[in-house]
Design a protein around this nucleic acid. Structure first.
Length: 196
DNA sequence: AGCGTGATCTTT
DNA sequence: AAGATCACGCTG
């Protein structure tokens, strides 16, 4: 399967959030263990007019990966337990990223089950903290990119427009009104929307 | 419905 | 130095 190159990521963040749906995220662990998941849910974060974006006030030690070139990986830790995976967008020195919120397990499922300590397929990667756990993604991955041997994306047919849903983003208190979440309609691996 | 968990950022 | 906040997941 064809690997996505830099040009793929060089599009506006909101467009990227949609185009990432259906693509295959590949994670290679030491010992050549191959883990793959199909992206089914994303959220866009932009520095401009988006207080929920970590970089809306400018560069800090934590968010600097968001200012790197498109295709960089931004990982951070939150709530004392969870790592979040973002794919950086926008040109270098401009902050933008797409949070990967859910995937459908495709390959390496036994390893994912082990990492999660769970058997149920629709629980393995149906949330942003779950999928990083299943794929063994942690702080050390922050600042890496999708053009090496540990992480990359494989192409796949675009998801038909009729199957793409849009909503507000989940779990944030600021800029709640922005409809920047994208997901595949009726896919069982999409996260349960939390109403709080 | 509640609570664990810890880095980061903001305020003193 | 201390405290609030947080793009969450689990159990009950």
């Amino acid at each position: 399967m064809e690997r996505l190159t830099r040009q793929f990521y060089e599009i506006p963040t909101l467009v990227l959030a949609e185009k990432l749906l259906g693509k295959i995220f590949v994670r290679i662990l030491p010992g050549n263990i191959v883990l793959k998941g199909r992206i089914v849910e994303t959220e866009a974060y932009l520095a401009e007019n988006d207080e929920a974006c970590h970089a809306w006030k400018g560069k800090t030690r934590r968010n600097q990966a968001m200012f790197q070139f498109p295709g960089t990986i931004y990982v951070y830790f939150t709530y004392g337990n969870h790592y979040m995976l973002n794919i950086v967008s926008e040109p270098e020195n401009t902050a933008g990223a797409v949070l990967i919120r859910a995937m459908e397990p495709v390959e390496g499922i036994p390893v994912m089950k082990q990492q999660r300590g769970m058997e149920k397929l629709t629980s393995l990667m149906s949330g942003p903290g779950k999928l990083t756990r299943a794929l063994a993604i942690e702080n050390a991955c922050n600042g890496m990119n999708l053009f090496g041997e540990e992480f990359f994306l494989e192409n796949a047919a675009p998801v038909p427009e009729k199957l793409i849903g849009t909503s507000r983003r989940i779990g944030i208190s600021k800029s709640r009104e922005l409809p920047w979440r994208k997901f595949i309609i009726e896919n069982p691996h999409v996260s349960k929307t939390r109403t709080a």
